[in-house]
Design a protein around this nucleic acid. Structure first.
Length: 400
RNA sequence: GGAGAGGUUCCCGAGUGGUCAAAGGGAACAGACUGUAAAUCUGUCGGCGAAGCCUUCGGAGGUUCAAAUCCUCCUCUCUCCA
């Protein structure tokens, strides 16, 4: 691939590259010297699920790897204790070494669904921060001014709105910045909200006499609600560990206006193919078709093409034709009769009796296809019955 | 260190002795309509087999027949002054 072709590919689905001309220079240099570029991406091993929003930059890393470069994943065992101020203001409890290990292994397992393991280097912040002295820390902090931090939107907003802002939080960009020095990063990947932190890396490298890294920023993927950024706290995310069925269903529940966005940032569709999708959307074709294609594509990435097709078929059976899914959880009871509310909670279709009664009252419950709304009903447990709550909660009840 | 303002349910936010499981909004959930889309309308939104009772308004005590509300101590946050 020529450098131009490489640049074109690498610029796909990217929001901003700072500075762009340096990227070309670095690629040229790598080609000339045969020395792969070091592509950095940092994660905090806090133990949360990896979702497809996280994977936008990770997929970019994979592209670099396919071009022969090295992916460097930084396990932020120090920054994890701060909590990224660009997100929410939570002060996090320190993690034990053991937790860090468990979390980061789980993390890597998820990232390797995308990354090329042979071209990935995993590094821990504790490798370089663990042995630092207070004098070293003071020196690092002296590289930045308070004004620089207050110029940063998230710090400023929190300050102006009278929200708590811990002194330790300003350490976050400093630590992340120094990581780039420690691993001699050529490129750092991150979401656009990471801009400040990525640029801090450039500053740090300059102070330490290194060639500055290029920051490549991916757009922030919106969650399935179509409003907020994809994230754990809002429960609007599609996780790597989600079942194929959940992935498919979650994609189907996104608002239509997110379709091209997801094609762009969550699939391997080429710009040309995406243009096709856009054309079809504009032509008045039912967006549901494209959404199904999207759901199939996303499932296929993580579970293979067959799984994608299988989920699509299952989805159509259950939701379009109203048939039963083939993987209904089964529960066996010894009783002859069971109070409907108890049945719903025992089968975990509802969390509490209150919820069960509410569902009954709201006409959301059916047994063998018949709507039930009598909260006092004693259900006969003779033969096998199928209980359904809402659109997607099923249970099969059999006699023990 | 001084002065002031605050901490309410998933989130924002009202509530200053009983009528408070706590207004309103958002989120979420369910129903109708659909395409597990959007918009709209309706309903629900601490727990208990539902009677009443139990748990919940930063924490611990106290006053009172009765406390989110009053008192004491503690704790956390913000603002202003050093």
């Amino acid at each position: 691939m020529t450098i131009e072709e490489q640049v074109k590919l690498l610029k796909q689905s990217v929001e901003e590259i700072v500075p762009e001309d340096k990227l070309i220079e670095k690629l040229k240099k790598a080609e000339k010297t045969g020395k792969p570029l070091r592509i950095k991406y940092g994660i905090d091993p806090t133990g949360s699920d990896v979702h497809i929003g996280h994977l936008v930059p990770i997929r970019k890393m994979r592209q670099f790897q396919d071009l022969g470069h090295t992916g460097v994943i930084i396990i932020g065992d120090f920054t994890a204790q701060i909590g990224d101020p660009t997100g929410k203001n939570e002060t996090r409890p320190p993690l034990t070494a053991e937790q860090v290990k468990i979390n980061s292994e789980k993390y890597m397992e998820q990232l390797y669904t995308v990354l090329d393991k042979d071209k990935t280097e995993v590094r821990y912040q504790s490798e370089w921060f663990g042995g630092m002295t207070m004098a070293d820390v003071i020196k690092l902090m002296g590289k930045f001014t308070l004004a620089q931090f207050l110029a940063h939107d998230t710090f400023r907003k929190r300050y102006e709105n009278g929200l708590p802002l811990g002194m330790h939080e300003i350490m976050y960009p400093i630590l992340q910045g120094y990581d780039s020095v420690a691993v001699e990063a050529d490129i750092e990947l991150g979401a656009t909200e990471q801009k400040f932190n990525l640029l801090a890396g450039r500053d740090m490298q300059r102070y330490f006499g290194q060639e500055e890294q290029v920051a490549i920023m991916s757009p922030i993927l919106l969650g399935t609600d179509g409003v907020n950024k994809m994230g754990k706290s809002l429960n609007n995310y599609i996780a790597v560990f989600d079942t194929p069925k959940d992935k498919y269903g979650k994609v189907m529940s996104i608002p239509d206006n997110l379709i091209t966005n997801y094609f762009n940032y969550a699939t391997n569709y080429t710009p040309q193919e995406i243009k096709e999708i856009e054309k079809r959307l504009a032509s008045g074709e039912n967006p549901k078709n494209m959404k199904q294609e999207l759901a199939r594509a996303i499932v296929s990435i993580y579970h293979g093409q067959e799984a994608g097709l299988a989920e699509e078929k299952a989805f159509n059976e259950v939701f379009a034709k109203g048939k039963l899914p083939d993987d209904i959880p089964e529960f066996a009871f010894a009783e002859d009769k069971l109070w409907i509310v108890k049945l719903l909670t025992d089968t975990e279709l509802c969390k509490t009796n209150g919820e069960a009664k509410r569902m009954l009252k709201q006409n959301a419950v059916s047994i063998n296809g018949d709507k039930i709304n009598n909260p006092d009903l004693e259900v006969e447990l003779g033969q096998e019955i199928i209980v359904k709550v809402g659109k997607r909660r099923f249970a099969k009840i059999i006699k023990k």
